[in-house]
Simulated assay, not measured.
Amino acid sequence: MIVYGPEGCGKTRNAEALRKHFGCSNIVDGWTLSQYVVKGSLHLTNETKDDLDIARQHGLSANLIPFGAAMTQMDTAIIARAGLGSTTTEKPSNPKDSVGIRKWRQYATVPATVIAELGVAMLEGAVKYGRHNYRVAGVRASVYVDAAKGHIDQWWEGEDCDPDVPGQRLSHIVKAIASLVVLRDAEIQKMLTDDRPPKANLDRVRLDMQATVEAILDRYPEPKDAFTEIGVRNGQGVTEFRPRIHLTPSEILGLGLQSFHSGGIVSERPTTLVGEK
């Protein structure tokens, strides 16, 4: 038996209960297609359904079941054994878990920290224009694309927070997210003025540029390190500097130099200058 599902979905946490349900003798956790199938064992894997189906066409001999379906099957069997409406202390998981994990509500995947900041960013727009005004007035796509890209570019170029927001503690990244939230909501609500340009041939661009990138990296297999703000702060790129000076015509004659231009010559700093002690 092979139970498959993405990493972190709960396979390992429910492994023992699944093993008992399917009547397997032991558990092979983290199984991959490069390994043999152990007869009578429960195999837990992160491999995708498509890859497993292809492997089965080439001789993989095992029953395949997605983790969500396995949990539903197991919980249904437990409820049936216990009797409708009754309880059991042996139940390894709440039957609602296997159903809830597949619901469209997936709020637990979103970090509350960013949501808190996003709320403040949306508050700024709410007090300036009226909360949810974009659902009534509608929005123009180009305006919010410019806003989002502008905030991202300012952050990328070293400005962490939006200076126009009182307190200057709201990240440009959050302001970009807020712009995209309004843009997407308007699209969902059919309140978007879509002024995007005619559709581009992105497939051609992707293919050409990917080929160019590969050619550049092949020609320069050992690229130089990137210069970064953190690197510069730590002295990246700093080399010993020897100042260059301008010499007057009289100093040129005194040093025995021949080449000069009007106003003096640019030269490496000599050991001793005329008039220098």
Rank of each mutant, 00 (worst) to 15 (best):
M1C: 07
I2Q: 06
V3S: 03
C9K: 06
G23Q: 10
V28E: 05
G40H: 04
H43N: 01
L44A: 02
L44V: 02
L52Q: 01
D53Y: 14
I54E: 15
Q57I: 13
Q57E: 14
F67T: 02
Q73R: 03
A77L: 00
R81Y: 15
A82F: 09
T87A: 06
T87N: 04
P92G: 12
P92R: 14
S98T: 05
S98N: 04
G100D: 14
R102N: 12
Y107R: 15
A116Y: 09
K128S: 09
G130Y: 10
G130L: 08
Y134N: 09
V139L: 07
V145Q: 07
G150Y: 02
G150L: 00
C161E: 12
D162E: 07
L170V: 10
H172D: 07
V181L: 05
R184G: 03
R184M: 02
I188C: 04
L192K: 06
D194P: 00
R196M: 01
P197V: 09
V205Y: 11
M209W: 09
Q210V: 06
A215P: 02
A226E: 10
E229G: 11
R233A: 10
Q236F: 13
G237R: 13
R242K: 13
R244I: 13
I245N: 09
I245Q: 12
H246E: 12
L257E: 01
F260R: 09
H261A: 13
S262T: 14
R269D: 04
T271S: 11
